[in-house]
Design a protein around this nucleic acid. Structure first.
Length: 416
RNA sequence: GGGGGAGUGUCCCGAGUGGCAAAGGGGGCGGACUGUAAAUCCGCUGGCUGACGCCUUCGUAGGUUCGAGUCCUACCUCCCCCA
């Protein structure tokens, strides 16, 4: 299992993406001899993708580097159903309008990470709404539904989990597996897609597609899953102070994105570099072997690389510079996230409670009060002690006030 | 269709049966210690207020009561058993 012949599987495994494969030897042989179209599906459940989805995108990048064709499937159709895999509860149903908006935002993100076009290893993007939305019910049941055994379906983890926990599973959700299976077959027919990848929670759905294809089209398709990425301390990845680690700059600034990577645990540096950057494996091995505080340099490289991939090298550079000035220079960087307040409002007198809350550092005036009591707020690096303080011109440094929550979170408040 | 059970601080789990802004966890945030790490210890974790205090919260809507998460009625959602 360890020695693969195909460039793709070799790198895929070396970077820690390999969890299960339906037929590793068969897939390896196939990928060593031809360009294989392969897909990953993404449901449009949120207004942006986060680094959990990024793991999937990185897998498509490896695929593309290996000379194969990535097929990005946006789930315009399946999002209307809601995948029960790995979830305790039914997700709230999204409106069609929202799904459309999310879809467009997803497309924009994919274009940053993958090269699209008509070439043999250029990525393509398709929407499963194109074939799912207009499926006629009875013919679909007769052609596809008859291949699915309820007996088998209720043993699948995605279904079993719900049943075992006595959580509701609607018929709508129950159908998700069937539709995803059908997607795979449809992608094979339309684009010659032979491989579906996904997280380990997708195993059942993927295998269902492979079974279906064997029955309907008498063809062997392949499935490849990846481990769920967690931090060393066991937490699911992707949570930051502000919530999920989003890939869209309007939901998480490049500065904060950079900071997320800069702050990973020591034990995660190498593993994350392999997954979330394109750095050569030998280089990563060297960087993760650094001891003690020297590892901080590796974390900066991780942050630079990951941010450059997502937001471009210019933004990564700005974020790195802002961090350097803020944490190492003891100064104020103009590149910190900035909140502009109208001059009129500024002159009317802005209390610090309101200022911190406006800046998003505290959630309410009460929260700001509690943080002051706990010594967590600073103004221009001076601890804030008086909650009645009103900001004035004398607080301005180069036209802005630096507000800080804790050691790490800073916002510049700038009257304009 | 019949019977039984459940919905609690909108991050999660979960105690609570007439006096509750509501126990306890987890998570999160802050402080100390560090290396913007981990581990550990401490504090905070409904809104407004300088403060006394006021307001809003226990599935929804009514009712009983000086007073209801707690009792009553109807409704909604879900689970289990029977059909």
């Amino acid at each position: 299992m360890s020695a693969f012949r195909s460039e793709f599987l070799t790198e895929f495994a070396a970077r820690g993406h390999l969890h299960q494969c339906t037929n590793a030897d068969g897939l390896d042989a196939l990928m060593a001899k031809e360009h294989v179209p392969a897909y990953i599906g993404f449901d449009c459940t949120a207004a942006s993708m986060h680094i959990g989805n990024l793991t999937q995108i990185m897998r498509l990048r490896i695929l593309q580097r290996g000379g194969h064709k990535p097929i990005v499937v946006v789930g315009g159709g399946t999002t209307k159903i809601g995948d029960p895999s790995g979830k305790d509860e039914t997700r709230q149903l999204l409106t069609d309008e929202k799904i459309e908006v999310h879809k467009e935002r997803f497309k924009e993100i994919f274009r940053r990470f993958l090269k699209f076009g008509d070439g043999p290893s250029d990525a393509i993007m398709v929407d499963n709404a194109d074939w799912l939305d207009k499926l006629p019910y009875i013919p679909f049941l007769r052609e596809i539904g008859r291949h699915f055994s309820i007996n088998r379906m209720i043993t699948m983890d995605s279904v079993k989990l719900r049943l075992d926990r006595e959580q509701p599973l609607s018929f709508l959700e129950f159908n998700y597996m069937i539709l995803q299976a059908y997607d795979f077959v449809e992608l094979f027919r339309r684009h010659g897609c032979r491989l579906q990848m996904g997280g380990s929670d997708q195993w059942g759905n993927i295998v269902s597609g492979i079974d279906l294809a064997r029955r309907t089209d008498n063809v062997e398709l392949f499935g490849l899953t990846s481990p769920l990425i967690t931090t060393s301390s066991g937490a699911k990845m992707g949570k930051s102070a502000a919530g999920a680690v989003w890939l869209s700059a309007d939901m998480l600034s490049p500065y904060d994105y950079w900071q997320y990577w800069r702050n990973v645990e020591d034990a995660d540096v190498g593993r994350f570099m392999r997954i979330f950057t394109d750095l050569p494996l030998a280089e990563i091995a060297r960087l993760e072997s650094l001891q003690g505080s020297e590892l901080n340099e590796s974390k900066k490289i991780l942050a630079n690389e990951a941010t450059a991939l997502c937001h471009g090298s210019a933004e990564a550079e700005r974020a790195a510079e802002a961090a350097r000035q803020t944490f190492e220079g003891g100064g104020v960087s103009a590149n910190l996230p900035t909140l502009e307040v109208p001059k009129a409002e500024w002159r009317a007198g802005l209390g610090i409670l309101a200022a911190f809350t406006r800046a998003g550092l505290t959630s309410s005036n009460g929260d700001a009060r509690r943080q002051i009591a706990g010594g967590g707020l600073r103004i221009n690096d001076e601890p804030a002690t008086d909650e009645k303080l009103v900001l004035t011109g004398e607080h301005l440094r180069d036209g802005a006030v630096k507000l800080s929550l804790g050691r790490k979170k800073h916002v510049l408040l700038r009257p304009v």
